Amino acid sequence: MARPTTLLACCKLYISESRNDAALRAIEQAARGGGGGAVVVNRFTDDAYNRVGYTLVAPLTPSPAPPPLRHAVLGMVRAALEAIDFGAHAGTHPRLGAVDHICFHPLAHASLRHVADLAGAVAADIGDELQVPTFLYGAAHREGRTLASIRRQLGYFKPNSSGDQWRGAPETDALPVAPDAGPERPPRSKGVVVVGATSWVDNYNVPVHTGDVEAARRIARAVSERGGGLPSVQAMGLAHGGGVVEVACNLLDPARVGAEQVQGMVERLAAGEGLSVGKGYFTDFSQDKIVDLYFRSAANTEG
């Protein structure tokens, strides 16, 4: 398969479940049954957060048929909504629904406009076919609102159980803002879905050796751009079990501010709290590695 002119789209799909093996098997089977073209290049599971992230890649074809990534993602979302009861979910990572977040990124020679159109189509599929309220952000939203802003409007960052846990569905099914697709009220067993399109984002988490979630939140606030810290960095302080908390970061412009800068600042801030820090980790591969994995898988399939 020739690489130079291939347009690729990447989708990161975050599911609010990591402990139900039968549910995850059904979701992964749906990805494999997506009609070909889409490849799952990574699965990142975090049992403390009770969350799993899938990374899919597929070509953007000029044919009038729907892109293979649209079909594969919709199949996985459908399987997740059928297999997971959001009302019974609990974990130490915030979430808005059984399928919490779907983000599309351009790879290779694709443009942000390409994946924005794809994100909009997937959001419409979820809202119209699966009847789940769906919210757009980034290049997929007409005003370009950010992921953080729609999450904040929907109460994403506020734990609803014991200070550091998110448990079950919200007590009310009234949404503070109208969805871009789907019904006005979310099913309690499904919640809502946020779908967007952005340039590449790195997710980098730094463990801090303490059970003090408030300390992690202070550090996260100081690291984040919103708190006056590093530009293009968003951060949350989250419990992670076993006497460890994490400063979980989104690096919105990793070419400008990368993991080394985040690691160094977390270490300095933690030292000021009298705390030690472990080596941070990415939750996914680099863009180049993901492209390479896709082409290797595609070549093996063709062979």
Rank of each mutant, 00 (worst) to 15 (best):
A110F: 09
V245S: 08
R142L: 14
A197G: 00
S161L: 03
L147N: 07
M236V: 04
A174G: 00
D164I: 09
P67Q: 15
V122T: 10
C10P: 00
F282V: 04
D212K: 01
Y49A: 13
A178M: 09
N203P: 00
A48V: 10
V39E: 06
V57T: 02
P106S: 09
L251N: 03
P62L: 15
L107V: 04
G242L: 15
Q234L: 15
G243L: 07
T5S: 14
A2T: 02
N42A: 12
F86R: 04
C103V: 10
N20M: 12
V208W: 03
Q287H: 06
H93W: 14
L69W: 15
S161D: 03
E302Q: 14
Q165N: 02
D180V: 04
H93G: 08
R217I: 03
D164K: 09
A271Y: 09
H93A: 13
H101A: 10
A124M: 10
S224M: 12
R32Q: 04
A83W: 14
N50A: 12
W200C: 00
A299R: 10
V40H: 05
S189F: 10
D47E: 14
S63C: 10
S297T: 08
A121Q: 08
A30T: 07
R296S: 02
G303D: 12
F104P: 00
D202S: 02
S162Q: 08
H89D: 07
Y54P: 00
G241S: 13
A235P: 00
G274Y: 10
A38C: 11
A121K: 04
I126T: 02
C249Y: 14
P170C: 06
L154Q: 09
E129C: 06
R51H: 13
V257L: 10
P67W: 15
V39F: 08
A197T: 01
E267H: 03
T55P: 00
G91P: 02
S16A: 15
E28I: 04
R142P: 01
A124T: 07
A197C: 01
R218L: 06
V257G: 01
A197S: 02
D85P: 03
F135T: 09
Q165E: 05
A181V: 02
H71I: 15
L74S: 09
R152E: 15
H109L: 12
R256L: 14
T172V: 02
L269I: 10
D21P: 01
P59S: 11
R43D: 01
T6N: 03
R256G: 07
G191L: 09
F157V: 03
G87H: 05
A216S: 02
G87D: 09
S199Q: 05
A108N: 12
A181C: 04
Y137G: 04
S16L: 11
G34E: 06
P254N: 12
N250M: 06
D253P: 01
A174E: 05
R167M: 11
G37W: 06
T5E: 13
A30Q: 09
A139V: 01
Y281I: 06
D128E: 15
A124G: 05
C11R: 01
V257S: 05
F282R: 09
A98G: 06
F104K: 03
L147C: 07
L8S: 03
D117Y: 04
